[in-house]
């Protein structure tokens, strides 16, 4: 008899606890972005396809469905760490099969060589190339994600990926990277290597 009572008591307890938990789940529900949105927010949005998916969102969906998190070279280790943190998975090193982490780049069209074929315009995932058929094309540098996708289709090979120059106001205080000059050498006014900037 007593064991029956025990089971009954436990069952009632479980029921009550379940009800409380269920109520709490509805009452105190925290609205959060769906997991795909959260993953997509962490990806760099270069839309480069180096992960093997046609853009960042498809890769986010793939990750949500269990794909590896280390296939994004533009995001690099920082993105992998964040994804690992979000998903509670192990942070792996970047999968070299998909490329390596590189400095930020931007596409530049050598405009006098452009034949106006519009192939790069079709390739650009973020519509950052301006131009029309048989007209010269140019890259809107601010919108370019550096994804590299326009380089391949160009029939005349006139697109360069140029490393983005760091401006003083976006310098990251890497004091150790400042080249140390010799005092004796610096007294000469030599600027021969400096590039001529455009005058108006």
């Amino acid at each position: 008899m007593s064991w029956l009572l025990g089971i009954l008591a436990l069952a009632v307890l479980a029921l009550v606890a379940g009800l409380i938990l269920g109520f709490a789940a509805i009452r105190f529900r925290v609205e959060s972005d769906p997991i795909v949105e959260q993953i997509d927010n962490l990806l760099p949005q270069t839309q480069c396809g180096q992960c093997g998916y046609p853009g960042c969102r498809p890769y986010a969906e793939a990750i949500a469905n269990g794909d590896e998190i280390n296939k994004c070279p533009p995001g690099g280790q920082a993105t992998i760490d964040k994804l690992a943190d979000l998903l509670g998975r192990e942070a792996k090193p970047l999968d070299a099969a998909h490329g390596e982490e590189d400095v930020k780049k931007v596409a530049v069209i050598r405009e006098d060589e452009c034949i106006g074929c519009t192939k790069c315009i079709q390739a650009c995932p973020v519509d950052a190339i301006l131009g029309a058929a048989r007209q010269m094309h140019t890259v809107i540098a601010d919108e370019c994600t550096g994804c590299d996708l326009c380089v391949e289709p160009c029939p005349v090979d006139c697109i360069d990926m140029v490393a983005v120059a760091v401006k003083p106001e976006r310098w990251k205080w890497n004091l150790d990277q400042i080249p140390i000059q010799d005092i004796t050498a610096s007294s000469e006014h030599s600027n021969s290597e400096d590039k001529q900037v455009q005058t108006q």
Binding site: W173, L175, D176, I178, I180, Q181, D182, I183, T184
Partner: peptide, 8 residues
Amino acid sequence: MSFFIASS
């Protein structure tokens, strides 16, 4: 002789 770079 060279300059010394340091943080403030």
